[in-house]
Nucleic acid binder design. Structure first.
Lengths: 343, 343
DNA sequence: CCGGTTATCCAAAGCGTTTTGGAAGGTTGA
DNA sequence: TCAACCTTCCAAAACGCTTTGGATAACCGG
């Protein structure tokens, strides 16, 4: 523990009041005194105790994140690391701290409730929204500022969110493959009770339908997005009597798995079979070096974290403001994993 | 914000003192009253305000983590997500919360200082120790309980740490390859100013030397551990006049890159060239399904997180206790990526 | 019936801040 | 010169909890 305000004040022969005001930039303190106080504070490495301050002000200067662990295998989705890194940048610049809670899906609601009831945070980020996500109504009802990373289809009441245009993104990717002559296009998706995965499938189905291609359920897979899942999916799908000539993947890791399976089977990527993947632009999973490995719909999840945090801080500072929303478009980057369909 | 203790007490016609004691399990309160209080608290969803509580008790019931972002590319190492998930399990079980700060390498020391000076945490976890890491002396001097995930060669004074036996792990892996007849063994390592990477190289060099094989600097690479780095390293190394017949990799992602490069060159994994990788057992990066993809030195970083958190809580609760240490061995899992050297 | 326990409760202080409501002294304007 | 300001500071209350040090009443043994 460090110096306290009282001690600092005593050492300066000033009252705590004056020292507090001097440091917080209030006008009613002499310029000379202010400087004297600031210098002494620096010298003593004084930082106001956050607990005491938040008790006095009623604001915690902290944001809560509840990261869900997929109940099945307690998998923590790797996008969280980068999203949080982005949000963390914003927080530290604004003098906020981040408090994190990682809990199994089942305990999630309680985790939000607790953080709030204990007065631990000024606002929250909602991660991984599902269809009709109950957390949104809950937080609205509790009156806590929050921003959802993603959206929740089925929730009508307005709320603040930041999302990428998953539908459009996968629609365009599908159209791109269709233009290359592909007709048998597989979708290797995340779990479709997750909102983002559902929207991606919708976009994919829409593009197919508009092009007069009947969506084939046999070509759609969904699971936790791991490399192994990608491998299994591609292996299975290539065994079909009428196998796909192109794959749409929901994550880089899945795409790795797809590639491994395809290569195992002696299929040339970008020649015999095409692959487009979504790329969250994770810092440790770059899509190739100079030339992109995969053709990809790309959007930086880190940037999303930065922006979502900014939105949240804004709603905290102007509580009466109506909900903020932000829809980010992805960019379609052409790499070496796509080519014309062989006929 | 929720109900306050005073309100709850008033609604029960009791003093705040009694309500507090009833809820905190002190003996000097009638069993009947206690039940009445507990019930009312549940009904009102009362949770004590953490800020107020920690102000009163002097303990925050919070642990600080400072996650470094590699200064070059601001990469956040994916192992952190799983480590933190593990630590988080322990924390929530013990009623602690986790406060996170993600900062560029350069600002790291200040981030620790701030958290402590502001009285935001009861203890800290030190991530990613480098050789002769200054944070250890700093925290020791500040008198804050902490546990290092890893160790720091060059720091003599005792401190609490939890580490895997990197040296032994890579020594064994190297010996394994030597026994298979490999002599040209490449090391594709993390950045060697990181303690773990340095220890791995030492283990590797020791095994080679003991076997009478001269370590060849041309066969050692180090960088941020991404897939792309693995690909580049393998591509380069295979171009050598006397290319390696085996690779040692420091992470799963690097191994993915190695495999891609090798496959690109038409080399068969486990036949023409062998690969052993370290596997942190990340939840979203499983080493294959039923049968392991890679021969690997495996150790769950999530389990490490759980244990490190437990150690930290222990040192917090018994401050006079001497430093705790824990050295975890890895297990060598044989997969399909290794085989006898071709002669 | 009475001193001494024991069981049960409470008033008040304190944790480290911010903030409200002055107070003292100096300055200004007529 | 004197009321009416500023300017600059401070004492004390408040935030929501825990904890110290009683207080009250009931109970007990002799």
């Amino acid at each position: 523990m460090g110096v306290t305000l009282k001690e600092l004040a005593a050492s300066l022969n000033l009252s705590p009041t004056t020292v507090s005001r001097a440091l917080n930039g209030y006008p009613e303190v002499n310029a000379k005194t202010r400087k004297r106080v600031r210098d002494a504070a620096d010298r003593a490495n004084y930082h106001p105790n956050t607990r005491a301050r938040s008790l006095a002000t009623g604001r915690t200067h902290a944001i809560g994140h509840v990261i869900p662990l997929s109940d099945s295998h307690e998998i923590v989705n790797p996008v969280f690391a980068d999203f949080i890194a982005g949000a963390g940048e914003t927080y530290s610049r604004a003098g906020y701290e981040m408090v994190l809670s990682m809990v199994p899906d089942a305990d999630e609601e309680q985790a939000y409730r607790n953080m709030i009831a204990r007065g631990a945070v000024d606002g929250m980020i909602v991660h991984g929204p599902k269809l009709n996500d109950p957390r949104i109504a809950m937080l609205t009802q509790l009156g806590v500022p929050f921003v959802v990373h993603g959206r929740s289809s089925g929730v009508d009441a307005p709320y603040s969110w930041l999302d990428i245009n998953n539908n459009r993104s996968f629609r365009r990717a599908t159209e791109f493959l269709l233009q290359l002559g592909h007709r048998r296009i597989a979708l290797v998706n995340g779990l479709e009770h997750m909102d983002f995965a559902m929207r991606r499938r919708t976009g994919y189905v829409q593009a197919l339908t508009e092009a007069g291609v009947a969506p084939d359920p046999a070509l759609m897979r969904q699971a936790e997005m791991t490399e192994v899942f990608g491998h299994r999916a591609a292996t299975d799908l290539m065994r079909l009597p009428d196998p796909p000539t192109a794959f749409l993947s929901s994550s880089m890791l899945v795409a790795y798995g797809l590639r491994r399976a395809l290569v195992d089977q002696g299929v040339r990527l970008g020649r015999d079979v095409s692959v487009i993947t979504h790329d969250d632009d994770l810092s440790y999973l770059p899509n190739g070096g100079d030339v992109p490995l995969f053709t990809a719909t790309q959007s930086s999840v880190r940037e999303a974290g930065r922006k979502a945090a900014e939105m949240l801080l804004k709603t905290i500072h102007t509580p009466q403001h109506p909900p903020l929303t932000c829809l980010m478009e992805t960019t379609l980057i052409v790499g070496e994993s796509t080519g014309a369909a062989i006929r």
